[in-house]
Simulated scan of single mutants.
Amino acid sequence: MVTITAVHGDITTQKVDAVVNAANRAMRGGGGVDGAIHRAGGPAVLEDCIARFPDGLPTGDAGWTVAGDLPATWVIHTVGPNFTAGERDRSLLTSCYRRSLEVADELGARTVAVPLISAGVYGWPKDDAITAAIETIRAADTAVDQVRLVAFDEATFEQVAGALE
């Protein structure tokens, strides 16, 4: 069974097998976690995104690229639903976590760092984003040993840690 740990910090500094990126459909970098991962990973991440995903990825799906200059081996990109734009189907959000773990299994990744998908600029209500992440990860049939739910700010970290208790 997978162990879920709350981590307060920067997802781009996590020394894990794979880091999950909350990407946009175009797979060409962006703001928030996506921009941070592309900046820290360097041009290799974008080059691999362009090569592997010439048409991007649909919402709820996931795929992988090299991690470039990140301390991780791979980046697993997943496209969360944009709540602010009216994409409110929760199954798309839970699919992001499920698909990310499936991709991690395909890669042989055993440690994975994950942000709260769609809870930033995409506006998914944070309480539900945390619940969706924890429930989906706990229910997953995966060979991943450890998932770090990484929160950049203290308040979100406290919420995640509290939900895990």
Rank of each mutant, 00 (worst) to 15 (best):
G41Q: 07
T94K: 05
V7P: 03
T131E: 14
A22Y: 02
V45E: 00
P125K: 11
D145G: 12
F83P: 09
T142V: 15
G80W: 07
V7I: 12
K15Q: 13
N21S: 10
F83K: 12
N82F: 05
T111G: 07
W74R: 15
E102D: 15
T59E: 02
E165G: 13
A26D: 13
V19W: 01
P43Q: 07
E165F: 15
G31Y: 01
R110I: 09
R52W: 04
P71M: 11
N21E: 14
L101A: 00
G30R: 07
V2L: 10
W64A: 15
E154M: 07
I37Q: 01
Q14Y: 00
E135P: 06
D89K: 15
A113H: 06
M1G: 14
G80F: 08
E158S: 11
D141I: 05
S91N: 12
W124A: 15
F152P: 07
T5K: 14
Y122E: 11
D141T: 13
T73M: 08
V144R: 09
N21D: 15
H8Q: 14
F152S: 05
V144Q: 12
V19E: 02
T111Q: 11
W124P: 08
T65H: 07
L164W: 13
V19P: 02
A40M: 13
E47H: 05
T111F: 03
G68W: 14
M1D: 10
S100R: 04
T84K: 14
G162Q: 10
V2A: 15
I37V: 09
E102K: 05
I4T: 10
G120H: 03
S95Q: 02
I76A: 11
G123L: 06
E154F: 05
G108H: 09
D17E: 06
V160A: 01
I76F: 12
G32R: 04
L101P: 02
A67C: 09
D127T: 14
V2K: 04
A6H: 06
V66D: 08
A143S: 15
A23L: 05
A140G: 09
T94G: 00
L92C: 07
T59F: 09
C49F: 03
D69C: 14
T94L: 05
V147S: 01
L149Y: 02
V150E: 01
D55C: 06
G80E: 08
A18R: 01
T5H: 15
P58E: 11
D153M: 14
V2F: 13
S100K: 00
F152L: 12
I76R: 01
W64M: 06
V33Q: 03
V103N: 02
S95K: 04
T73E: 14
A6N: 04
T136P: 05
A18N: 04
G108N: 11
